[in-house]
Every structure is written in C-alpha cells, then in structure tokens.
Simulated assay, not measured.
Amino acid sequence: MRDYEDIGVRVPGGRLAVRRWPGAPGAAVVVGVHGIASNGLAWAEVAEALGDGIELIAPDLRGRGLSRDVAGTGSMARHADDLLEVLEHLGIGQAVLAGHSMGGFVGCVAAHRDPRRWTELVLVDGGLGFPLPPDTDIDAVLHAVIGPAMAKLDMEFADRAAYHSFWAANPAFAELGGPLVAAYLDRDLTGAEPHLRSACRAEAIRQDAEDEFRSPEVFAAIHELTVPTRLLWAERGLRDEPVGLYAPEVIAASGLAAEGVALHFVPGVNHYSVLLGASGARIVAGHLTDAVRRTPTRG
C-alpha cells in the first residue's frame, strides 16, 4: 500500500482533515472530492491505482469524517473555498480536480469560480443536476436517492463489524471489500462501542443537499466551464440498479457533448464501485493519469 499522511488545514470554522498520498518529487497533483455522506478515504483505491507518480489529496469535507466538527453552513461554494485553502496550505499552484457524486458538483463550482487553479476537471458519476420543484421535501429526496447513507444517520452500531455488515447488505457493496474499504467505513464512525454513530452531521448533509438540488448557480456550473472537463458515468445505480444515476438518455439530452465535455460510459460498475472497487478505480486512475499530463509539475 502507498505511504500516506493525515494533515489538518485551517479553514473558517475549524481544521479540515486531509488524507495525502505524496508523489515522487515534482509529481503532478490531483485533488479528490468525495460524495455527500462519504469521506476522503473513498479515494484510497484510486490512490493505489495511480501509484506514486501522482500525488493525491483528498479532504474530508466539513461535517464528515474527521472534519465532522468544522463549523459553518455548508454549500458547494463553501467546499470550493475550502479546497483553495488546502492548495494554499500545501503550496500547490495548480492541480487536476476530481469529484465523485456530490463532489462532482463541488468540482464544477470550484472550476467555474477559479479556473486558473484547476487544469482539468474529472467528474465521476456526479456534477450534472436537475432542479427540484420548490415544494419538494429534501429529506424525502435524500432517502429516495441515497437510502442507506441517510438511514445510517439515525442508527447506532455496537462495533465496527456491525457497521460493515450494514453496508454489506447494500447490493452495491456486494463486490466491495478488503482493507481499503474497511478503512473508509471506519473513518465514518464516531463515538465509542457499543454506541458508534456515523461521523456525518445530518445538518451538514441537508444544507449541502439544499444547495445541490435547488441552486441555479450549481446546476449551471457544468454548462459554463472553461476548464477541460470529462464526465465518467457508471452503468449501475446506488443500490446496484441496472440503470445508473445517469440514464443514457439523460446523458444524451444533457447537451454536454456539444459544450465540450468528454463523456465516458463506465460499464460493469455501480455508483459506489466506480470509485471504491479495484476495476472502477483503475478506470478512474487512467483518466486522472491522462489529465495530469497537461498539468505543470512542481519543481
């Protein structure tokens, strides 16, 4: 396994926890942004697939993982600002930006706001959104879309094994396992046995969901990018449904191809395994490797 370090970056409201897989001297940098109820270790399998020729930096977004206690209202713009704080802290001028699920929306907003800091944007099953009717209940949408990721917020777990079993019951995790997935799940726990709970703060998730699902600026960001962008979309869904988060007809009707976004279908994976599984991570790593070829190296 690759060497790594955990660092803290001062942001408004506290210290953001960041997992860093250092690269060889002069290596290009990728910043990976996780989904709405996830944490930075979602990128661990990708880090392994990249190898030490590329540095990978993956923060726990505020309100999640080891950044659970970072205060302040959440939004895609707030997370985008936090990413800039990470770059400044580490002395990084430019990087490739990658986002999975909600992280894709963060990536679109970040690249739209600060195109000179991000040399390319790689979206992994996220970033393309559609507005909800004004009277839609956000909690109902979250339970319908991300299901177990919302259910876990109201649950306690006697030990880590119980939490692992909870996720193993999701068909999307049927082929996922090993120490990297276990570490990812463990980072999403807080408290002590037998009263372990998810480290995700419910209010942080709701605030981000309001922005992700209702903000016209967030919806528009993917259509207004000047940074080279590619979207990888998984064949299957969040519960391993045969149709993924983005159905083929949705991708076709999005207008993204005409706007210059490169579209890549990823067969044989679902919304989770495209990042957490070995085969999906290799595909994502291949796209990131291609993207960093256009990224200036650090001397």
Rank of each mutant, 00 (worst) to 15 (best):
Y4T: 13
R10D: 11
V11R: 05
P12E: 02
R15A: 12
R15G: 04
R15P: 06
A27I: 08
A27Q: 01
V29Q: 05
V29Y: 05
V31Q: 05
G32L: 05
G32W: 01
V33S: 02
H34I: 02
S38D: 15
L41F: 07
A42N: 07
A42W: 02
A44Q: 12
V46E: 02
A47C: 10
L50S: 10
G53V: 06
I54F: 02
E55H: 01
A58D: 00
G63W: 06
G63T: 10
R68Y: 07
S75V: 05
H79D: 14
H79W: 11
D81C: 08
D81L: 04
L84E: 14
E85S: 15
E88S: 14
G93D: 09
G93N: 06
G93F: 07
Q94T: 15
G99N: 03
H100L: 08
M102R: 08
G104V: 00
F105W: 13
C108A: 13
A111S: 09
D114K: 09
V122K: 03
V124S: 05
G126K: 00
P134R: 12
T136H: 11
D139F: 08
D139M: 14
H143W: 14
H143M: 12
G147P: 04
A151K: 09
L153K: 10
M155Y: 13
M155C: 09
D159L: 08
R160W: 12
Y163H: 09
H164E: 15
F166E: 02
W167M: 10
W167T: 08
A168S: 15
P171H: 11
A174Y: 06
L176N: 06
G178F: 03
P179N: 12
V181L: 14
L185G: 03
D186C: 02
D186N: 10
R187T: 01
R187Q: 12
D188N: 15
D188R: 14
P194Y: 09
P194E: 13
L196K: 02
A199W: 04
C200S: 14
E203H: 13
I205Q: 06
Q207H: 07
D208S: 15
A209K: 01
E210T: 12
D211N: 06
F213N: 03
F213G: 05
R214G: 06
E217V: 08
A221M: 00
A221K: 02
L232H: 07
Y246N: 03
I251H: 06
S254W: 07
S254M: 04
S254N: 06
G255F: 02
L256H: 10
A258I: 00
A262R: 15
P267V: 01
H271D: 05
I283C: 09
H287V: 03
A291I: 00
R293N: 14
P296K: 12
